[in-house]
Structures are given as C-alpha cells and as structure tokens.
Design a protein around this nucleic acid. Sequence first.
DNA 1: AAATTGATGTTATATTATAACATAATTGAT
DNA 2: ATCAATTATGTTATAATATAACATCAATTT
Lengths: 152, 152
Amino acid sequence: MSNCKTHKTCINEALKKAETICNEKGVKLTKLRQTVLKLIWKSHNYVKAYDLLDELKKIDDSAKPPTIYRSLDFLIENGFIHKIQSLNAYVGCSHPQEHKECYFLICDSCQNIEECCSEQINKVVISTTGKNHFELNQVTLEISGTCQDCTN
Amino acid sequence: MSNCKTHKTCINEALKKAETICNEKGVKLTKLRQTVLKLIWKSHNYVKAYDLLDELKKIDDSAKPPTIYRSLDFLIENGFIHKIQSLNAYVGCSHPQEHKECYFLICDSCQNIEECCSEQINKVVISTTGKNHFELNQVTLEISGTCQDCTN
DNA sequence: AAATTGATGTTATATTATAACATAATTGAT
DNA sequence: ATCAATTATGTTATAATATAACATCAATTT
Ligand SMILES: [Zn+2]
Ligand SMILES: [Zn+2]
Ligand SMILES: [Zn+2]
Ligand SMILES: [Zn+2]
C-alpha cells in the first residue's frame, strides 16, 4: 500500500463518502474541513497535526493550531479519520460507513497504515472483556511493525 | 480492583520483582527510580507524568521534567511499568517477569487499570497480521470502559 | 589515580493540544 | 426581510506532554 497505484480513486472515494455521510447526518463538510481531509488523504501514511498545519498554511496563511485541531475533531467525530494514539498522528479512514472495531497495521519503516476489521479479533475482545465483567466503551488496537513492501 | 484490599502486598511484590530483575540484568534500581516506581504503584490507577512530578517534588524539591521522564524511560524499558498510549499515562506492570502481549482494561470512571494477558487475543493478532504479511513488532491494545466495581 | 561509563542536575526548548474570547456565516423562526 | 440563535472560523494566549543539550557527580574499570 506504500505506493498505492489507484490513489486518486482512494481520495475521491473518501471525499465522496464524507460528503454523503455529512448530508445524511445533516452536518457540514465545509471548505476548510474538506481541505484538511484532502491533506490527510494525500497518502495512506499517517500525518502529524503540525505537519498538516504547515501544509494548510501554504494554502491559507492564517491557519493556526485551533484551525487544524477543530477540523481534526470534526473529522474524527464523524469517522472520516482516526487518531493513532501510539503516535499522536492521524490517518484517513478507509471505510467510514461500515467502521466497527478496527485495528491498525502501522509500518515503522514507511509510515503506511492499513486499517483492518477482524470479526475474529472483535469477538475475542468482547469475550475476554466479558469474562472480566468489563463494560466496553472503546477499543484501541494499534500494531506496529514492518509491512510487506518494506520487508522485501 | 479499585479498592485493592491487599495493596501493600502489590507494592512490595512490585518492588521486590523489580529488584530481582534488575540484579539479573545488571542494571540499577537507584533510589530515585525506586521512589518513582513506588509513586506509580500508589494505586492500580493510571498516573500522569506531571502529577508524578508534583508528587516527587514533595520529596525532592529539585525534581524537574527530565527527572521523571528518565525514570519513566528506565522503568518502561525494563518492563516495570507501561505507558497507556491513549491517555498519555503510566501504570505499574503487574507481572514484569512473564509479560508478553498484554492488554489493558481502563476504567473511565475510576481510572483503575487491569492488565491482562490473553493467549487467545495473542493468537488472533498473530494470525491476522500473518494474513497481512505484516512483521509484527509491538501491539498496543487498550480497552476503555467501565469496570465491574463502577458498574454496580 | 586516571579513564570510562552511568546517573542525575539544570536550563532551555520542542511537540502536542486546548481555553477563551472575537467575529463571521448560516439557519430558522417571526 | 429581520432578528435571534446556532455553527464555524479567526485570533491570542497558554496548557500539557516530552526531549535536547550540556554540566556535574558517582560508580566501575583499568
Ligand atoms: Zn490509495
Ligand atoms: Zn512499509
Ligand atoms: Zn493492589
Ligand atoms: Zn472503575
């Protein structure tokens, strides 16, 4: 995924989905939010907030930390991006509609992130938390390592 | 676990284990590091670095951020504590010897953390990353929600 | 004792994120 | 259309988290 051959499609799909979902929810994908989403979707790599801010400044000189963090908040709230907790970084969500308990494969070498859903992992998490009588709220599963492209 | 009835034992065990492991490894559990470890083990709740620093300052007025972060680094490196990535917080490791792929049950209500090992989760993670031809390095699994004590 | 290594002290600064308040744009009701 | 309420953005300041860099001190090795 490091060099995605069909990345224009990825971006277009992501933007289209975001628009659709916003319309359904009655929230607004403003120009700014769309711009930030595009910047995040520049690749499948994770991005840091202040790098994003630097990029945004090239477009809008007046951008400041709250500019970027507000957009990030909106995009996270609506499921269009995810925060990678172990890296304080952000990445586009590849399937905002059907997103459930996903996990992330994070390549230490190329910063590529693959977002996966595993019904199996989901089940195991639910069953083991159940055994602990723990009422589940949020699952953070982030796996770092080396992706296939970088291993070869 | 929120009100651990045998917490003195928890602390003593943690300190004893840390000493043993340090001796085996030939690294030093200095006075400072031991103090920080004790402060972290004050409870099973997670603690923030700067709160820890405030506590340490009560003992040693000259403590500064590097003081605490160096100790945290040492304690993490040697497996005596863990960093909770989703909270930028730290918690004592309940089983530093046999620690493998553990996960954390984090109570949003009482800040208690239970560290668990599940061979089952471990297996599923390995098998699903294998399917993705991903060479695993580090797994971060943090589950937030409400613990049994807080549900009742 | 001198040299090396490891630990701590100290100052400064980098990185990540939010509070607080002002202004502008949009929506919705009258 | 007008006003009020809400939502979004602009702006300044600061909070919270973490590390770099260099000085000093202590322990260990030669
Ligand atoms: Zn792509
Ligand atoms: Zn890679
Ligand atoms: Zn205890
Ligand atoms: Zn609880």
